[in-house]
């Protein structure tokens, strides 16, 4: 009888340890997202100038956003045929475009109120965290997708899905015809023109 009790205890402790191990990455991913959004909100609350906001977002994005993954998936299979220089160039241009857009959107706005749902595992090392974002009396459902970066040992956002529309999928729909027609040089040229246009406004 005693043995059975001990065995049961060992089993329970083992199970608890196992389940806490399994829950850990989901919690870590969520903590990373909450931390990142809190940092961005703190920046927005200070109402910086657009220049300052872009500069601050640049460093924050490096820390919390996996832009290399975002760019690779936005370009699709053609990515494999690009030179490392082209890949790096496209990643830089694309991240500047996205940061600028977000800076434009959030400038002079109060940070939105975010409520988080539990993380859902997409596959090993990838999680999706659904959130509800309330801003200016509008409520949006926005999911963040994160993966684990072995280099920086951090969970980083690689895709944002707003009301069912994925950032990556939306850019892929736009990039595909350009890449098909004029390859990586064409896409680099298009992004450079877009950025020049956006900065002239």
């Amino acid at each position: 009888m005693q043995t059975v009790r001990i065995l049961r205890l060992v089993f329970l402790v083992g199970f608890a340890a196992f389940s806490s191990l399994r829950a850990a990455p989901a919690d870590d991913a969520k903590a990373a997202l909450v931390g990142g959004i809190d940092e961005v909100s703190a920046v927005l609350r200070a109402h910086p100038s657009q220049q300052d906001l872009i500069a601050t977002l640049d460093t924050l994005v490096d820390k919390h956003f996996a832009f290399a993954t975002t760019t690779r998936l936005s370009i699709g299979p053609a990515w494999r045929d690009l030179t490392p220089e082209q890949q790096a160039k496209l990643t830089t241009l694309f991240s500047r475009l996205v940061i600028r857009t977000y800076a434009d959107h959030f400038q002079s706005k109060t940070p939105p109120l975010v409520t988080y749902s539990p993380a859902q595992e997409l596959r090993a090392g990838r999680f999706e965290i659904p959130t509800r974002v309330v801003t200016d009396d509008q409520t949006y459902s926005i999911s963040y997708r994160l993966d684990y970066d072995n280099l920086s040992k951090r969970w980083r956002v690689y895709d944002i899905v707003a009301e069912g529309v994925s950032l990556i999928a939306n850019y892929r729909a736009q990039f595909d015809p350009i890449v098909h027609k004029s390859g990586a040089p064409g896409l680099i040229q298009t992004l450079e023109a877009k950025l020049a246009d956006a900065s002239s406004r």
Partner: peptide, 11 residues
């Protein structure tokens, strides 16, 4: 945000 607003809105 878009490089091709038409395709972005369509998607």
């Amino acid at each position: 945000a878009a490089v091709d607003p038409y395709l972005s809105v369509r998607d």
